[in-house]
Nucleic acid binder design. Sequence first.
DNA 1: TTAACAGGCCTTTTT
DNA 2: GGCCTGTTAA
Length: 760
Amino acid sequence: MSVYDNLNPPQKEAVLCTEGPLLILAGAGSGKTRVLTHRIAYLISEKGVNPWNILAITFTNKAAQEMRERVNNLVGEGAESIWVSTFHSACVRILRRHIDFLGYDNHFAIYDTDDQKNVMKEVYRKLEIDTKLFKERAVLAEISHAKEKLISPADMEKEAGRDRTALVVANAYREYEQILRKNNALDFDDLIARTAELFEKHPQVLEYYQERFRYILVDEYQDTNYAQFRFVSLLASKYRNLCVVGDDDQSIYRFRGADIQNILGFEHDFPDTRIIRLEQNYRSTKNILQCANMVIANNEKRKTKTLWTENEEGEKIHFRQFMNGFEEAEYVVGEVQAAVRTGEAKYKDYAVLYRTNAQSRMFEEKLLAAGIPYKIVGAVNFYARREIKDLLAYMRTVDNSVDDLSVRRILNVPRRGIGDRTQEVLQDYADEYGISFYDALCQIDEIPTLKRSAGKIGSFVSMIRMLKTKAEDCSVRELLEEIISVTGYRDELEKEGTEESESRLENIDELISTAQSFMDAAKEEGREATLSAFLEEIALVSDIDTVDPGQDYMLLMTLHSAKGLEFPRVFMTGMEDGVFPGYGTIMSGTQADMEEERRLCYVGMTRAMKQLTLTAARQRMIRGDVQFNKTSRFIHEMPREIVDLGHTVRETSGSVKESMKARSGLPFASSKPSRGFSDTAPGIYRNNPYTHVPKPAKQFQVTAAAKPDYQEGDRVVHMKFGTGVVKSIVSGGRDYEVTVDFDRAGIKKMFAAFAKLKKI
DNA sequence: TTAACAGGCCTTTTT
DNA sequence: GGCCTGTTAA
């Protein structure tokens, strides 16, 4: 009896089939991590493959960590030389060694979204782009998409042709790249794109890694983008031992460039592919699975498959609707509290999932009040906090003073009386002589116009110099502590004495302990704890990675963050049209967009092992004002006979159960959406002890905005965009969404109440 | 040069 | 509701 006998037949087949391209279509909870880890073990112990020759790629650090642990347990000796990492960190490792082939310094910095925005600001200033006409976010998104497809600024420019708008973006892209290069920095997309470029331009480097990684495994293949596909296929093209695992039904990152074609066309990209399907689910109850299957079956674009399970039938799916988000949160908190009190469950058995991060606030308040331990994943990344970024910018300056962005960030933090004006002069000087911002600081005496600030800048420079010297022979932690004290950063916050400064200080302490544990970990693994390595690790860490399974707290996160995780009990909240699926998808989305939302729903549902509760609110505060939403269309797609609606139902209007019975036999999916659950009679679902007495119905009438006094085809004038023609007017619940083709600014979509268009 | 205030604009989703 | 930008007063 070997370890492989515990696998079911298709799983076993996937483990044993080690040579050549292999596509494993693994449904949710079908044990794919198990297959991957056993496969690695099999390669090493049965096939005599050198661990050194194996590369396993995952999407999140957490998944990588988990796989690493399981591989370690299975393999023992030699496991540490297997590369188990995310796309991003694998690429960083490669680039640190070989990016000099592309003319970069191997000490490059990694820019996060925040840094990218700052670079963009500089681009706008240089090219005199109007922030009103081109949103930074949008341009950055386009650049990102270009990089995901390995499109260079030159390609983009060609493609733009004579399209003015597209040309501006292409120019911005080129300038953006120049700044990054000058700062010796890469953004997230670059990590992949530059590695692919490196492989393509330097065959000898590619060959080195092809020899190194003879066996490649890729998890979550449905979420890879073109650049990642390139990276993987280049690496695998020599030995062709490529095993990818994925599930087209769980593809939820199309918006950031994931190309579902990668998985659907895998057999085409790699002829002679063996395909194995894993359809037995080991995670969820029959009811949960059936419900999820029913929902996903509404998608047209998918490889049809049906998950099944031998698990017990389990509880019904619970659905509860409330008057507002407030009561929804109270219900969730109450349920958890009750179950924990009776010993039926632990906090860590629970996860609360929602569509957007903004929805976490309500739950956070209630949990805080109830004294329940919880952790919110991903709301504001720890490393994105101001104080942390400031301190990291100091460290980055010490590490790589060509990184203008970091130097500029800290030049006047804490306040040193060096203002914008001075910065501008310095930047101009640096630009003129083609030197870095930091070098300009060093040459302050050469700039006559800055006599007055020369002293302040001089002392800043000597402080950085001192830190640089210090960094050479002290640990990361010592350097950090030195920075905190010598800059007066801590003193400044301590003087403030507000609640906010208090929490900032706490964060700083946490950063210090992060540095310490980084050093400890490095020591244990026999690595050197260099400053660069520390900065790199931090750049690639996300929130979910810091979840400690030993602690008993409940988790709150977006549906996206939940992918790859499982919980005994799951709440999916905000199940309303307009929230989930989102407003934008309903109003202006394509069918493909809606299908992605549905897959997201499927992902959420299949996270649950034993208990799944769906909640919705009738009215909800969104962006400051109240919105009224129908129950999510996804709810209506679930089979009603396995959904429990709660029991406390107002008798007068006929119980819900009664009215349901009248349509018995019909799954929700086939009754008209608006009738499946009552959306018209408020106050029916008084199904929890916290529910307040419902208010009179008229309070919940939707008061639509006044219809605009222009029509389709009319010429209108807008304050900023000038004149244009109205293309369409769509009623969007509380306001009208107007699409206008402006003479100068192009096509814009806007809300009538905001836009204040005037007919001319 | 900076702090304080008003107004615009916004939201998916993340490595 | 909160973040960012631009304006103004000190």
